[in-house]
Nucleic acid binder design. Structure first.
Lengths: 191, 191
DNA sequence: ACCTGAACACCGTTCAAGT
DNA sequence: ACCTGAACACCGTTCAAGT
């Protein structure tokens, strides 16, 4: 005899994201998610294949949220100002959502990884700006340099790895400024 | 009645490192380590406080190994060549020991993290070279920029995150070259 | 058609009992 | 003094039984 559904995939993903933000990935257990949506753990398997798929669905939402955040920041006409705005927005987002940030950039089992096309969307605004700064020929290398720096910086900042003193905000500004000039060099528009 | 020890902390750490390199951190279970040294899992608790401490001991060894690798690479007289050599050695080491790399740079529970002074030793060669290139005033910011870039790059390369085509080796060379010039700018020795 | 308790195979960890 | 089986509290996951 059919019984009405008491939850939904959307509700499960939303509950999972809330648990992630509040207490981190390791606190994201099937039974805790189930409790949050008002069922028992085994019932979740009617909506998701397993914990890995749930993690992947959450990561997809997070990637889309980040893409929107970066798109919204990339409104400057000047590409140097645009790059700075993207970098600043990225850092602000990462510091505000550290667990979500790690979900995107830490290593995860293959079946928990974000869909490639969703991931590509996050990189879009940056790729366009890098192309403007570095020229088409070096756009990809330039974007990779900036993305690598930004990811490494936030990973270290969130891990508390900057332990040798100094001002972390200043180190970030230094990096943005120097990288902007570095990828601009040798562009078709001159130094 | 006293019985002779059948294993040692060193043997446990070495076995743990071997399992880590072979199959990754999640395969590093207490029972697997115990089997590798010829005892049962509960016996490990005579030598280490728990899995977290074992992970930390392994991470310390890994950090020291990396520090030696980077020190050995930093022999060039020219600081630009030195920076390139350090970066290349770092990448080669990370690609050869991906699990060890992640153990050092991924987020871990506090009680599993490398001792701060051991961690600082890894950064030493780079800090000296950065000081030569960027000048004392910007040495720390410059080192942070380079370390962030290198960590981010390897994290992405190991995660298979460079999926938009192009040559990854070339992107690495591009990054090294541009970063070297970027942190050198405005040094007391001129451009 | 959905939900559940019970069960299974794993973890890390503790501890009384063996030697 | 060290080692062990048994036990405990957790995981994720499966499945027969309930409604």
């Amino acid at each position: 005899m059919p019984t009405p559904a008491r939850t939904s995939t959307d509700a499960i993903v939303a509950a999972g994201r809330a648990i992630l933000d509040a207490d981190g990935l390791e606190a994201l257990t099937m039974s805790r998610v189930a409790a949050a949506v008002g069922v028992r753990a085994p019932s979740l398997y009617k909506r998701v294949r397993g914990r890995s798929e749930l993690v992947r669905l959450i990561a997809n939402d997070v990637a889309i949220e980040l893409a929107h955040t970066l798109d919204a920041a990339a409104t400057a006409k000047d590409p140097a100002a645009g790059l700075r705005a993207i970098a600043v927005a990225f850092r602000a987002w990462a510091l505000a959502h550290p667990e979500a940030y790690h979900l995107l950039f830490d290593r995860l089992p293959d079946d928990a990884r974000v869909d490639p096309q969703v991931n590509a969307r996050s990189a879009d605004a940056l790729l366009r700006t890098a192309a403007e700064l570095a020229g088409e020929r070096h756009a990809l290398d330039a974007a990779r340099t900036v993305v690598a720096w930004a990811n490494g910086f936030l990973n270290m900042e969130l891990a508390g790895a900057f332990r040798l003193g100094g001002d972390v905000d200043e180190a970030f500004d230094f990096g943005v400024e120097r990288l902007t000039r570095a990828i601009r060099e040798e562009s078709p528009f001159g130094p």
